[in-house]
Each structure stands twice: as structure tokens, then as C-alpha cells.
Nucleic acid binder design. Sequence first.
DNA 1: TTGTGACTGATAGTCCGTG
DNA 2: GCACGGACTATCAGTCACA
Lengths: 70, 70
Amino acid sequence: MDVLQRLGQNIRRLRRARGLAQEKFALQFGIDRTYVSGIERGARNPTVTVVQRFADALDVPIAELFAEIE
Amino acid sequence: MDVLQRLGQNIRRLRRARGLAQEKFALQFGIDRTYVSGIERGARNPTVTVVQRFADALDVPIAELFAEIE
DNA sequence: TTGTGACTGATAGTCCGTG
DNA sequence: GCACGGACTATCAGTCACA
């Protein structure tokens, strides 16, 4: 399992758990909507600071976004 | 504590725990020594795939590189 | 043994749109 | 509600000489 896909799946899972659409989520935290899409699909390779912004937006420690999927 | 500095300190700590100088570590894993230096100092903002390479080199899960420092 | 500034090609990240 | 594309600018990847 690729690290980018794992990251994307974790972000998608946590975002949906909060009942937020991609666009609403993106607007709310100043991230581009198409970029959120690309990251959730594992098609993008974001920098650490961007991953940190996702962690802040989702209110979880950054390490949790890299957690293994059972 | 900035996420980049935390990342850098974790990498440095784990590298030294393995008794490796930056240069030896860098050579061994095909990373430039000065690039290792920049990341350990928190002066660089690497992408996820680069962080994954460090995790592989140090033989730890990527999440561990983002662990909080006590 | 490591820190640092400067550099070039590659890609991160934004903004516009479509089905 | 989301995937995907094109075009664009800012920043990163990777390397070097030097201290």
C-alpha cells in the first residue's frame, strides 16, 4: 500500500466522518478544492506543511494521517 | 513546535541512535548529505515521498517521524 | 563532521473550467 | 458531490563550493 494512497484514504475517511463535502472542507481551510481531490485519490505528493494543514483542519495529530489501514 | 523542526529532530535522533554520520547515512541511502542536513535542521519542507524514504532508511513507520518530542 | 547560499529542472499548489 | 484537465506561479528536489 502506497504511502500517498494511505494518506489520501485517511484524510477522506476523517473528512467524511465530519460530514464535510470536499468543497466545503477546502473553502473552510483555504486549500484548493481540486487539490483536496487529488490528495484524497493519492494522485498528489504534498509537502509536510500541507499535510500539517490537513491535520489541523481535521483536528488530529499529523501522525494519525499516516496510520496503517486495517 | 514547528512540524518541520519536529520532523528534523526525530530524524536526527534516530540517525544518531544508529551511530551514523550524516555523510555515511546519506551515501548509504542515495540522499545528498547537505539535503539531510537541511531537513534535520527544519530548513526544508520535504514532500511525503521524501519523508517515506527517510522512514525506510531508518526502518521505522513514517508516523514515528512525526511523533511529539517529550 | 556539519551548516549554508546559490543554483536549475521538476513538481507542488492555485485557478479556471468540463462531464 | 466529485474526478479530471489545462495553464499558470511558487516552491521543492537535488547538487555544488565553501566555511
